[in-house]
Amino acid sequence: MFPTPIEKRSLPFNLSYRVAVWIALFLWLLPLIAVMVTSARSMADINGGNYWGIPTEWMFFENYTMVFTQTPMLRYLLNSLIITLPAVFGAVALSTLAGYALAKYKFRGNVALFAAFIAGNFVPFQILMIPVRDLTISMGLYDTASGLILFHIAFQTGFCTLFMRNFIVGLPDELIEAARVEGVSEWQIFWHVVLPLVRPALAALSVLIFTFIWNDYFWALVLVQSDEVRPITAGISALKGQWMASWQLIAAGSIVAALPPVILFFAMQRHFIAGLTLGATKG
């Protein structure tokens, strides 16, 4: 283990390390903590310039109730779910099929196709912007959830296929061969042999791209314009303009927007990190 385990050091060193870790964490999250405290401030505090001290009264419930009742925040939150969940499902499903084909079948162009998926995943969004916007408009999907969902599925398929292909490559060929000898059809092999084995990868991938899609802002700006469809990232930035002076509400809104991915991350932490670093331990 590196650095040297702390248990092997002196007691004072140990104690100061244990304290330092929490101080460092506090400083690291200070901007975020400030926002959380601000989301519980009263209007009087904001007007009086009390931005960083302890709030004179805690308005936690009042502020959050106001965010949900006086603004379209609830709608935005719902929109984000309506867009994100199907997009995650679609991208994971398509890329599991594609990843399996790339991992376990030999055919001409296999490597080239794999390379295209990887490369596509890194391109700047702006090179896609105008044509994708036109395409979405011409299909009548501009300013609809479906328009965004379709794009997210297509784009995330690049990363997801890379991910699934690398996972499936590691599965033993013998299992598939044995099933083939038994006369099991290719589709059945995929469904009954491969799919159960890739379940951990599916979980990791889903958590990861949930946050990618949830946090998307650019495509929400480009493909959507009305409050009825707008996801929470674009929503909160629209609200910012309207409530310039009501920082406590913007703060509460920001916390609401940040919460779902944070909760998901905490609940599925192991999967999340496995997903994020799969490439880092290989490659």
Partner: peptide, 9 residues
């Protein structure tokens, strides 16, 4: 999907 939304654009 990838060709329609990424490569072609």
């Amino acid at each position: 999907l990838f060709v329609v939304y990424v490569i072609f654009p």
